[in-house]
Write a protein that binds this DNA or RNA. Structure first.
Lengths: 337, 337
DNA sequence: CTGAAAGCGCTTACAG
DNA sequence: CTGAAAGCGCTTACAG
């Protein structure tokens, strides 16, 4: 059983009223210095901490931000989380993180749960299923309750709120352009993530835009079917097609491409150049090391937190949500010429 | 500004007392069916949810578990977290996760913060710095407050609480034995994690115990120095030493060993066998795929949560803490004979 | 300078 | 069957 010291107990022991103790703890100038000292002394002795529940109930603020993430095994979100935590922490906010595992149902439950736990605001990256189902009532509910939401990375046009996104299309264009500039002409796009995802769509569009404009460059697309056979699908594809470069639309696709090329005896980057998205563990520890699009996940998360916090701290009835775009950059390593 | 419906508002609109509304919402049999229905109807209309802060303040329970993790980019902890979440969720508990990034200071702050936020209990894996400094006052404080703690994986003898650990020593012994059984005699142990860590110590001990008993088998040890030069340190080591097997005491060490062997043109597993710890992304996406010690992280997390929850739900004054050991298993893949 | 009172949103023993 | 009252632990306007 929890047994924390309360104001009441301090007051009793000091022969003071609860009000006086409370004010003393805040060094209220209307309290005598002597009393203030007495109170602090006993409070320290008992290691008194005000009960956060009571404070929040009174103030209607929890100084807590709810963070909804689709995945955590993914380096990108883990880094974004780090950025969020840093920024929030610096502004005196705590964060509560929930992982939806790409499930709509989980996302719904978590949003309700956190709202019900009175978090002050939300930072959200939508789950794959939510983007696919296109159902966002849980966020309109938040708006009705007056709880601010900032979406990042996986966003939707359906909800009018602040957003922070990566310019996936431009990133993809730049990656393809880099492949072309380094002499590749037979480019393939491989992805292990669903095309329902806003980011996947944009990346594919970007790739197409560049190759469509360029007669000498062809673009092939490998839509993977089954998570259990990704490897053999990629292996078969690499063997059966005449290509000299692969853009993996996600980190896993690029990592598997490298491994299957190795298996088939293709030299990287001499025979096949490979570029991936997301600068995670797999990119850093592949051999050869992967050239990759860095999405500056930390910065993305930090920016989202910053926007939310500034909202929370300076409430403005007439605020108009905006969308912030964070630039990507290409980290050139050993898998490209 | 938050504007959620309260009992008061419902009561007013229904011309009932707050007590009656509260009881109706709980389908209290002493309330007439007619009233119950009226109340539910309006509550649904407004999507009423009781204010969790108020409920917790009253009940002195938050139904929330604080989880302290040293890292999240590490697959092992991410999976353990998943196990914790599942189990907690099934028992009606929420979890709040904090990542210490191996920092003692962060760990201290988070434990205080979560305690102050009145979580019902803690699940903790100690940070590296905490194990190194050997300072655990923040946990004795919790005990004083009567807040139960379950430690897992990274534990300490200094605190008397429930613990769930992996049998790292046995795991390491089994791994070395497997290498010997498959014909290896010149074995090296490589680690990128600090020897201050309880787990690192145990794994090394296990390895030594087996090789010490076996005249024909030699054990070399590579203590890595600088995170920035891990790769070249391992590369140099592999080139300069005559070895036919490597046990990586952590996933990164094993992954880098594979890559550097590839770079040096050593055939895996023909010339060098490699075994790692932690069945994470790097093990699954290396080429060749890594034989690895699976620590059943999910099970570990689930067990920790289970122990804590059963504590919380059936408080027992005279409970004696125990230590639970979860067995490991060797997942044989392509990096060993 | 100190304290009594009201109130945040709920629950529940008690009264009617 | 319904409601008034006390209380969880705090804060703060008000009184003295």
């Amino acid at each position: 059983m929890r047994k924390k010291v309360t104001l009441k107990q301090l007051a009793k022991e000091l022969n003071l009223s609860i009000s006086t103790v409370s004010k003393s703890l805040k060094n209220d100038p209307e309290i005598s210095e002597k009393t203030i000292n007495r109170v602090h002394e006993l409070a320290n002795f008992y290691n008194y901490k005000p009960n956060a529940l009571a404070v929040s109930l009174k103030s209607n603020k929890t100084k807590t931000i709810g963070v909804i993430l689709p995945e955590i095994l993914n380096h990108f979100y883990a880094k974004a989380l780090f950025g969020i935590e840093q920024e929030a922490s610096n502004s005196g906010y705590k964060i509560v993180t929930c992982i939806t595992n790409e499930s709509f149902k989980k996302e719904l439950e978590y949003v309700e749960m956190l709202n019900y736990s009175s978090v002050d605001g939300f930072i959200v990256a939508l789950s794959q299923e939510t983007q696919f189902l296109n159902k966002f009532d849980h966020y309109t509910d938040l708006k009705r309750d007056g709880v601010p939401v900032v979406m990042f990375d996986r966003v939707t046009d359906e909800i009018n709120c602040d957003k922070v996104v990566v310019d996936d299309k431009v990133a993809s264009k730049n990656a393809i352009q880099y492949l072309i500039d380094t002499g590749c002409t037979k480019i393939a796009v491989i992805t292990t993530i669903s095309n329902d995802l806003s980011v996947a769509k944009l990346r594919l569009e970007g790739a197409k835009e560049v190759t469509d404009k360029n007669d000498k460059v062809s673009l092939k697309q490998l839509p993977l079917k089954d998570p259990n056979t990704f490897e053999s699908e990629i292996e078969d594809f690499l063997r059966e097609n005449d290509i000299d470069a692969v853009l993996g639309l996600d980190e896993t696709a690029a990592a598997i491409t490298i491994n299957m090329s190795l298996k088939l005896g293709y030299k990287i980057p001499e025979e096949v150049s490979v570029i991936g998205f997301t600068d995670g563990l797999l990119s850093q520890h592949s051999y050869p090391k992967l050239t990759t699009v860095s999405q500056h996940a930390e910065e993305l998360g930090a920016k989202a937190a910053q926007i939310l916090v500034s909202h929370l701290d300076n409430f403005d009835e007439n605020y108009k949500p905006k969308t912030e775009i964070v630039k990507t950059s290409l980290i050139v390593r050993d898998s490209t010429n």
